[in-house]
Design a protein around this nucleic acid. Structure first.
Lengths: 239, 239
DNA sequence: TTTCTTTAATTGTAGTACAATACTACAAAT
DNA sequence: ATTTGTAGTATTGTACTACAATTAAAGAAA
């Protein structure tokens, strides 16, 4: 277990936190204004420079906009703004627990089955083959999880759709959070069998079957993680 | 057709763009350093203040870290960091074209079918019912699209999984981008029929059928958008 | 070798000054 | 009466200077 590093909070970080609290506590809604920079800086006890860096944080996230004379205001979430719109997604991705991740994985991978087949190229299939083979002869759990993660990431790359690609971190995160769970010899063997079946079906091009295979493959996790999660939360955590 | 507003780019925005290009073009990888602030500021022709605001942008996104003496460096993408990991997703979500969005919608909605049924409550079903009814008696295209968008957003809320909720902007974005496409009387009638079928199946709880219905419902868009997109790109754009 | 000390590079922070912008009000013109 | 021009002004945008705080790395001491 690694020790977390303590890094001193900068004035800017503090300002960011204070501004965030300010927005939340005052329930500032779309279009409502923040105090002028000079005033806000004085209130928070930082220079205007630093305050502006803190504001930039929220500008980047699309939470506020600012303009001369008008001042900073809580932004209307424009459709063009990627960060603002997907902020809830980013937050829930951060806090997501295994069962939630498993559900989304199930949805995306089974739903993408037909596009995987459509986009399968010999090179990608070869790479998948290699990953599956290495996974078969690997016993170290951490390495296995890494390979499994990469196998499924590669599956999501098959469609050649950048949106699917972009969601790969979800899969990675899933496996990362899965890591502590113990795996049985049985589940290892089953995983290998299922991976081979998935590969074979990718080759034959049977979309319905691939979907069914991916579904039942993840379904195991769905059940496993749910119980694992439940058990873990039975012993209530301290600290 | 509305006129787009012109907003002048600030020096900070420009700096952000330049730094981004710098990182990409030099293929800066994890741990590699940026020039010191004074140097970088001079190179970009902005003051150190402004440069720091630009750097704050990337700090917020978790792309860089900075420390005294060491300087700014491309960050190791920590699994905990939501922004950094999902940055490619955010970027592609921003630039995604209709066919890509349609594919992801297809995957998520069909894949989530069984969770929709599991999470369907009478209240939510009633809300869906109301939306479908209003959609049926609405003819104005813009309003129809709005309602359709909300109907599908509500579908994604059924599972009660915050990750699905977080992806709702994708659906909204899809319909936003679909807006200019002309719809026929026929497609309107079909949409109504399909929405009613989806609702009925949510009530009976037949997951396989729901999945099939959602699939064919979106499938129309899949085909439509593909051709619409192709046609639109035939006439090459000027400006 | 290990540990302490010094040094120097770099970020972190504060303050001042002024330019640029855009809201507001009001005058002028059609 | 409605539109168009104009000035006033609050606020952000930007630049510059100065110094404090931090820390990696080199050097000195044990």
């Amino acid at each position: 277990m690694q020790i977390g590093s303590v890094k001193k909070q900068t004035a800017c970080d503090a300002a960011v936190a204070m501004i965030g609290r300010y927005i939340r506590e005052n329930k500032l809604e779309e279009g409502m204004r923040l105090p002028p920079e000079t005033e806000l800086a004085e209130q928070l006890g930082v220079s205007r420079n630093i305050l502006r860096e803190a504001l930039q944080h929220y500008r980047t996230l699309g939470i506020i906009t600012s303009a001369p004379k008008t001042g900073a205001a809580v932004a209307r979430l424009l459709p063009e703004n990627p960060y603002g719109n997907y902020l809830p997604f980013l937050e829930s991705a951060q806090e997501a627990v295994l069962p939630e991740l498993a559900e989304l994985r199930y949805a995306i991978e089974t739903g993408a089955a037909r596009f995987m087949i459509a986009g399968a190229t010999p090179e990608r299939l070869a790479r998948l083959e290699k990953l599956a083979a290495e996974l078969d002869r690997t016993v170290v759990n951490d390495r296995r999880i890494e390979l499994d993660s990469e196998f499924h990431a590669e599956l999501l790359r098959l469609p050649g759709n950048s949106l699917f690609d972009g969601l790969i971190p979800l899969v990675v995160d899933f496996f990362r959070k899965l890591r502590p769970e113990p795996r049985t010899e049985l589940s290892r063997e089953r995983a290998g069998r299922e991976h081979r079946a998935i590969l074979a079906t990718l080759r034959t091009g049977d979309a319905a079957k691939l979907q069914q295979l991916l579904g039942s493959h993840i379904e195991h996790y769905l059940a496993e993680t749910k119980t694992a999660f439940d058990n873990r939360n039975k012993g209530k955590q301290s600290c």
